[in-house]
Design a protein around this nucleic acid. Sequence first.
DNA 1: TATTGTTATACTCTATAACTATA
DNA 2: TATAGTTATAGAGTATAACAATA
Lengths: 165, 165
Amino acid sequence: MTPSRQSGSGVETPAGRPRGTAFLLSQVGAHAAARFADLLGGLGVAPADVGLLRMIATQPGRSQQSLAEELGVVPSRVVALVDGLEGKGLIERRRNPRDRRNYALHLTADGTHVMTEMRTLGAAHEEEICAGLDHTQRAQLTALLETIAARQGLTPGVHPGYRQH
Amino acid sequence: MTPSRQSGSGVETPAGRPRGTAFLLSQVGAHAAARFADLLGGLGVAPADVGLLRMIATQPGRSQQSLAEELGVVPSRVVALVDGLEGKGLIERRRNPRDRRNYALHLTADGTHVMTEMRTLGAAHEEEICAGLDHTQRAQLTALLETIAARQGLTPGVHPGYRQH
DNA sequence: TATTGTTATACTCTATAACTATA
DNA sequence: TATAGTTATAGAGTATAACAATA
């Protein structure tokens, strides 16, 4: 299965366009992310806000430090993200009387509502991106992607877009 | 196949982590892009330089305008990218005596050399990302991604990371 | 001293708009 | 007037490092 001599490395077409699986992954993945960002625009939140909101919704009372660690970003960035979400009235910082150094983060009623809308958006996005595939193909694709994600050591549910340089 | 009532929309696990195919695509795609950027670092070029170099290599003499149009970016951005690549000695601007308004862009000898190394890097990257998959699975994944790319109207070989807001 | 969070700062990326040279 | 390219500028995103409050 190893052609003795082919044009170049096999990752480009004769016309010079990239054609490898890795490029396709990056291309389609960036498109999916951009489309989701578009959908989110209507809600007034940015892609980076989504992970934060989701973690606070799942584990209310988390500190900024713990979010920074799980997302792989510097604490000062969490300050900016939390400032934004608090300014929009989606979350609130509650002082912990036991240890007044840290905040316990909680969703507000508005924040809970936005989370619900985000889930609806997520389902619509899923449908849009997978539109050309039948049920079997979707399952196949998911399995292949999960295999790569595990092999590459990606943390389930955490987007690498957060990761520090 | 429509469960009458499930936990949420189906795009999140009970623990609140996203699990949809679209999220996986975005996650794995971003990881692939980041790894490629890492590999490129050793060559001293950025991901955004790659498409430009490739287009100039494939069609020498192209103008900055034509690159801007194909990549979907504003001409002033091409100026910055071309400035960078010219500064590194990888490409050169040649005046066209027939129409002195535009430049014909060409790779230098160094640029050609870097293109060769980029192809090698591309093959290594491909191998790294697909490491957990056998030949059949790689072909399956490629086919599924190509189906989505076509359905979503993506231009073959052009990364959406360039696209204008 | 150690920890949580904040501020000040700087750097990169990228778009908009005004401008120059040429046609 | 129209086109190719450039410059000036501004805004978003994100890291580093110094700092304040609390433990």
